[in-house]
Amino acid sequence: MVSFLFKRLIQSFIVMFTVALIAFSMFRFVGDPINNMVGQDTTQEQREELREQLGLNDPFVVQFLRFAGNAVVGDFGISYKFKVPVSEMIAERMPATLELAFVSAVLALVVGIPLGVYTALRRNGVISKMVMTMSLFGVSLPTFLIGILLILFFGVVLRWLPTFGRGDVVDLGFWTTGFLTKSGILSLILPSITLALFQMTLIMRLVRAEMLEVLRTDFVKFAKARGLPDRSVHFKHALKNTLVPVITITGLQLGSLIAFAIITESVFQWPGMGLMFIQAIADVDIPIMAAYLVLIAFFFVVINMIVDILYYAVDPRLRTSDGS
C-alpha cells in the first residue's frame, strides 16, 4: 500500500509539473506580457526596465523554476487587468465554484445511483423505460441549452427562481457561502441542476449497467438460493459490488464538474472561477489563466488520489493482496 501510494504521488507530481510547464509557456509564447501591462505611451527604456525588474530576461529554466516555486506557495503573480494578486481573486471566487460543484455532485449521486439501481432491477418496467429515454436527453443535450431552457421556464415564464448570480452570501472570513440565505439557496437550484444533469445520467447509466452485470453473477444467484430476501440480495450484496467500479468514474466526474463549471457559470453569470477564466481569456490575462489551469489539475490529482485510497477501503481484495 505504501509503495502504491508512493508511486501515485510520483505520478501526481509529474502531472502537476507538466501542467505547470504548459501554463508557464503561455507567458512566454502568448503575446508579450509587458505589452499587456503597460499603456501606449510607455517608453522603450521604461519597458526594458520593467522587463529586467520582472526577471523576464532570465533564462527559461530560471523563470520556470521561479514560477513553479511561487505556484507551490499559492502565488501566481498579479493579474494584468485588475492589478491585484491572482491568489486573492481565486480565493474570492473559489467558494462559489466549489459550492456549485458540491451541490451538483450530491444531486448527481443522490438521484443517479437510485435511478440506476431502479432501472436495473425493474429492467422491463414502464417507468424504467421512461427514465432511460429521458436520460438520453440528459446525455445528448448540451449544457448551455439546458441552462437556457431552465432559465426560460423557471425564471422567465414561471418567475419562481432567480436566473443569475449567487444571491445574498454570508462572509465567514475565509469563505463566502450561499447556503445560509434563502436567496443564496434559491440561486443555487437552477445552475446546480444544469451542471448535474449530464453527470446524473452518466452515473445512472453506469450504475445500471454494472448492476445488471452483478445481478448475473454466481454469488447473487447463490444468495438467492440461500433464501435471502430480495432487499438483502439487491442492496447488501449486489449494490455494494456495483459501486466498486462506479467510484472511479464518479471521482473523475467530480473533477470535471469543477473544470466544466465554466459553461454553467457563464450561462448563469455565476461569480465563480470558471466565469473569471472566461473573462481572463477575453482579456488575455495570462496569470489568471495559468493559475486556473494549475488549480484544476491540482483538483483532479487530489480527487484521483482520494479515489485510489477509497478503493482500498472498499475492496478487501486489494487490502490483503500485499499481505498474503
Partner: peptide, 18 residues
C-alpha cells in the same frame, strides 16, 4: 436455504467478495 440447500459449481464466484 431453509429446507433445500443449493451448492453451485464455481466456488471462486459463489461468495460475495466484499
Amino acid at each position: 436455504g431453509r429446507r433445500i440447500g443449493m451448492i453451485f459449481q464455481d466456488p471462486l464466484t459463489s461468495l460475495d467478495p466484499l
